[in-house]
Amino acid sequence: METTTENKSLKKYKYGMVIDLDKCNGCGVCSIACAVENNVPPAQAKANKRNGISLLNMHTVSNNEQFPKNESAFIPIFCQQCEQETPCMTVCPQNAVDIDPTTGIVGQVPQRCLGCRYCMTACPYHARYFNWWDPEWTEGMKQQLNPDVAPRMRGVVEKCNFCHGRLHAAKQKAAANGSREIDTADYIPACVESCPNKAITFGDLNDEPTEAAQLSKNKDTFRFLSRLGTEPKVYYHSEKKWVHEMAEKSLTRSLQEEIHG
C-alpha cells in the first residue's frame, strides 16, 4: 500500500497479540468485553455460532483421549491481522478493507462494504462476520453503547480491528499532550484488558524488548495456517504437545492439497 510522506516520518508499529492457550480457561470475559466495547448487538433468536456475530469467537478443542485422560483447550479465533497478501483486502471490490501502514492493523470500513462476502470466503480463519439482521438493543441498552464505536448496519461484514476506538482515543490523548506517539499504556484492546488470567499479550511486534515481541519468538509459539504465507500477527502459545500437534495439522499441507493444489 502506498504511504504518504507524512506516514513515512511516523514510527511504524506492528501491533500483534500472543495468546497463551495454557492460561486460557474459556471464561468468556474476552468475548463479552469485545462485544460491549465494539457495540456488537446481542443475538437474535435464530442466531447460532455460524451466523451470529462474535468478533472474538472461542473454540474448544480436545486431545480426543477417552475419559478421564481427555484434555481440552480453548482457542480464541478472531481476525489474525494478516500482513502479507491479506486475503480479505485482496478480494474486496469496494476497498472496504485496508491496512494501516503505521500500525499494521487490518481495518474494515462498513460504509464501503456492499455485503458481497467475498472477504468471508477468502478469510482462511473464518474470522469475519456478516450482519444478517438489523442490530437490536433494548432502548436502555442503546444509551449504554460505546460512544467511540459506530454500530454496524444489516448487510455489512465486520471483524476484529484491535479495538480501533481505543487506538483513536490514545492518539487523541497523545495529540492533546503535544506528542505524535501514543503511550503504550493508553492502547490496550478490551479483551487484553479484561482477561483475568493475563493470557493475552498485546504490543508492538517491531519493538524487540516488549513482552509481545519476545513471546512471538518463543519456541512454543505458533501461528495457525502460517504455511499460507499471509504472516498473521496473532500468535498462540502452548507447552502442551497435543495442542502443538493439532496446530501442526494447520501448518502442513495435506496429501490432497499436494495433489490438487
Binding site: 474459556g26 468468556g28 468475548s31 463479552i32 469485545c34 462485544a35 460491549v36 456488537v40 446481542p42 443475538a43 442466531a47 447460532n48 455460532k49 451470529g52 456475530i53 462474535s54 469467537n57 472461542m58 473454540h59 474448544t60 480453548f74 438493543w137 433494548t138 441498552m141
Partner: peptide, 13 residues
C-alpha cells in the same frame, strides 16, 4: 445480559 449470547448462543463456549 442479552449480550451473554456471545458465549452461550453464538459460540460453543
Amino acid at each position: 445480559s442479552p449480550i451473554m449470547s456471545k458465549v452461550f448462543q453464538e459460540s460453543e463456549l
